[in-house]
C-alpha cells in the first residue's frame, strides 16, 4: 500500500522535474555567446539572408515566447530540426538511443554481476591480500580517465592481440531494427552469427564503462556487508547456528544491497555522461557520439535534445531505483 503511495509520489514529482530540466537546458543554450544562425547560414550569407533564416527558425522572437514554444514542442516529442543537417532531432535521437541504452544496461549488468560478489568476498576477507588487491583495482577504477583506458584497451586487445574489433557496433549493416537493441534483435531473428559479432563489438566499450562502475559497486557492497556483518542480527543468527552461507548470501546481502542499489542509480547517470567520451573513442553510434558531433558543430537544438533526453533517462532510472529500494527495504515502504 505504502509502496503504491511512494510510486505515485515519485511520478507526481516527475513532471516538475522534467519541466525544470527543459527550462534550465533552454536557458543555458540561449545565453551562450555564439550565434548559431550565422554559423548555419555560412560565410557567404548576406545580412538579409541571416535575418530571414533567423525568422524561419523562430529565433527572432523574445526569449519567453521561444521557451514556451520549445516546451510545447518537446512535450509533443518535437525537438526541432538539426541546424546542420535539417533532419528532425527526435528521429536522430530515437535511432541512437537504443545503442546507448544497450551499452549502458550491459555495462551496469556486468559491473553488478561481478562487483557485488567481489564486494562481499572483500568484506568477508577483510585486510587479506585479496582485499588489498581489490582496493587497488577499485581506486584505479575511480581514478583512471575513461578515454585513456578506452584507447589503452583498443591498443592492447584490438591492435596488439587482435581479439576484438577496434570500433563500431557491428560488422556490416547489423540486424533488422525491431527494438533497436542489437543483442535482442539478432536473437529474435535467430541470427547467432550477428549476435556474437555484436557481443564482440561490445566487449571493449563495456569494459571501459564497467570498470569505474564496478569500482563503485565493490566499495559500496563491501561497506554494506561490513556494517551488516557486525550487527546484532548477524550475531543472533550465528548464535542460533544458521549456516554461514545462508547468513552471508541471504541475510547480510539483502541488507548490504540497499546502499548498492542507490549507487547503481547514480552510476547510470555517470555512465550516460561517460558514454559521451567512450562512444566517441569507439565510434559507437549512440547518443554520446551524437552529442560530441553536435557540440563540435554548435548544433544547439541537437545539444538541447540530447541533454533533455539523457536527463529524462536519469530521472526515470532514479524513479525505478526508488521503487526497487522500497521493495528491498521494507522500512522505506511500510
Amino acid at each position: 500500500m505504502k509502496l503504491l503511495v511512494l510510486i505515485l509520489n515519485r511520478l507526481f514529482w516527475f513532471v516538475p522535474t522534467v519541466l525544470g530540466l527543459i527550462v534550465i537546458t533552454f536557458t543555458i543554450s540561449h545565453i551562450i555567446p555564439a550565434d548559431p544562425v550565422a554559423f548555419v547560414a555560412g560565410d557567404n550569407a548576406t545580412a538579409e539572408q541571416i535575418e530571414e533564416l533567423r525568422r524561419q527558425l523562430g529565433l527572432d522572437q523574445p526569449m519567453h515566447i521561444q521557451l514556451w514554444r520549445y516546451i510545447v514542442a518537446v512535450l509533443e516529442g518535437d525537438f526541432g530540426v538539426s541546424l546542420y543537417t535539417l533532419r528532425p532531432i527526435s528521429e536522430d535521437l530515437a535511432s541512437r538511443l537504443p545503442a546507448t541504452l544497450e551499452l549502458t544496461f550491459v555495462s551496469v549488468f556486468v559491473s553488478a554481476l561481478i562487483g557485488i560478489p567481489l564486494g562481499v568476498v572483500s568484506a568477508l576477507k577483510r585486510n587479506s591480500l585479496l582485499d588489498h588487491v581489490l582496493r587497488i583495482i577499485t581506486v584505479s577504477g575511480l581514478a583512471i580517465a575513461s578515454f585513456w583506458l578506452a584507447i589503452l584497451f583498443q591498443l592492447l586487445f584490438a591492435m596488439e592481440l587482435g581479439w576484438t574489433p577496434l570500433q563500431g557496433r557491428v560488422a556490416g549493416w547489423g540486424p533488422d531494427v525491431i527494438t533497436g537493441f542489437f543483442l535482442i534483435d539478432s536473437l529474435i531473428m535467430g541470427d547467432l552469427e550477428t549476435f556474437w559479432d555484436v557481443v564482440s563489438h561490445m566487449i571493449l566499450p563495456v569494459m571501459t564503462l564497467a570498470f569505474p562502475a564496478l569500482a563503485t559497486i565493490v566499495r559500496f557492497t563491501r561497506a554494506g556487508v561490513l556494517e551488516a556483518i557486525n550487527s546484532n542480527y548477524v550475531m543472533y543468527e550465528e548464535a542460533m547456528g544458521m549456516p554461514r552461507r545462508v547468513i552471508v548470501w541471504k541475510y547480510v546481502l539483502r541488507n548490504a544491497l540497499i546502499g548498492t542499489v542507490t549507487q547503481i542509480g547514480l552510476i547510470f547517470g555517470i555512465l550516460i555522461a561517460g558514454a559521451v567520451v567512450v562512444e566517441a573513442v569507439f565510434d559507437w553510434p549512440g547518443l554520446g557520439s551524437y552529442a560530441v558531433q553536435s557540440i563540435l558543430q554548435s548544433d544547439y537544438n541537437a545539444i538541447m535534445g540530447f541533454t533533455v533526453v539523457s536527463g529524462v533517462i536519469f530521472i526515470v532510472v532514479n524513479l525505478t531505483v526508488d521503487v526497487v529500494h522500497g521493495f528491498i527495504d521494507p522500512r522505506e515502504s511500510r
Partner: peptide, 14 residues
C-alpha cells in the same frame, strides 16, 4: 539464545 536487544536482533529487511 535469547539476545539482549530484541530491537536490533531481528533482521530488518525480512
Amino acid at each position: 539464545f535469547i539476545p539482549q536487544d530484541p530491537f536490533s536482533s531481528f533482521n530488518p529487511v525480512f
